[in-house]
Nucleic acid binder design. Structure first.
Lengths: 178, 178
DNA sequence: CCGAACATGTAAGCCGTTACATGATTTA
DNA sequence: TAAATCATGTAACGGCTTACATGTTCGG
């Protein structure tokens, strides 16, 4: 249940319409919590119904741009959620399921496919590093340090997967039989 | 849609009943793709209906233990799935959403909570390292090398989160105001 | 033979994905 | 003013979680 709180955070940083939010999600937040615009609109509707945000527009304002901003109750809810104990998130990754199937089965995964993964991770890593260079090069306060940490986590994640993909490529090249 | 294929892999490694599978999932596979027993039974039902596995027992064999094994069609389906192109999985992590909210809001996350995460990751890391020592200490063939890679990925993942949690603890200790 | 533990299963509900639909705004 | 695009929204569906339910086996 992170999306509503991700939206609240984003709206606190800057009041926005649904489409602007969707765009910001695609550029930034989607790096650690993706959501398509349909789901964003749905959640915004729920948040407004719950009195946590407001847009000052009729219910079915189809087509007309809305300007959402966070109400005090919304800020309070975000604080409450943050103070709440949370669970460490378990790893959940399809690639590992595929590797395990590959181990049980013999050759099936194509090197071509793993190389595609590799490229995707390289690209994202490049994007993160560029962002680090342009936005986090100077001395930083607490807020910037926290946002930098998020970025560094993303970088660590991509580096990890680069190394996993490279090892996988080596292993897949090996002959199946002993 | 990884669960059915994870089940097929597990059943190829060793034919099992639903409860045995659930137990193996909790011990091993849950480390990268968790599923509760209810969902496992549901998926086993679907797989049997699709003719990919068989248990040689009536439909609602409530209570009576079943012995599932993979049929040739199941092996074929697993091969097909593996050969299929797959998407690199995006990072999706609630902790990052929380960090971002913390940046936007000021102090709310408790150090106590982050320390709980830290401990959980330490524990899992210890478990993985122990498993590495007992099961992957000798020279290995292709299959074992693949399974070792999966384990090493888990280790890398836990190490990454240890370092993130430690950095987060440092930052949270800092005063909010500039 | 009775209760506890085991093995399997059903039901409701939320989150997220995909495909599609409708009202406004811009632009040629 | 018609077409393209933008902004918002609906509908259908599947995976996953949680809580609960039913039948079987086993230990005393």
């Amino acid at each position: 249940m992170s999306l509503p709180h991700a939206l609240l955070s984003a709206l606190i940083e800057k009041p926005s319409s649904g489409s602007e939010l969707a765009e910001r999600f695609d550029r930034l937040i989607a790096n650690y919590w993706h959501a398509p615009h349909q789901q964003i609109y749905k959640e915004l509707g729920k948040l407004e119904a719950a009195g946590l945000i407001e847009s000052g527009a009729p219910q079915d304002g189809r087509g007309r741009k809305r300007a959402y901003k966070v109400l005090p109750a919304g800020k309070k809810e975000l604080k409450r959620w943050l103070a709440e104990p949370s669970e460490p998130q378990a790893l959940r990754d399809e690639f590992m399921v595929r590797l395990r199937a590959e181990a049980a089965l013999g050759t099936s995964i194509t090197a071509k496919d793993v190389k595609r993964h590799l490229q995707a991770h390289e690209q994202k890593l490049k994007f993160f590093r560029e962002m680090e260079r342009t936005e986090f090069s100077c001395i930083e306060g607490r807020e910037m340090a926290l946002r930098h940490l998020i970025l560094k986590a993303g970088i660590g994640y991509e580096e990890l997967w680069l190394s996993i993909c490279n090892s996988a490529l080596e292993l897949l090249a090996k002959p199946t039989a002993e």
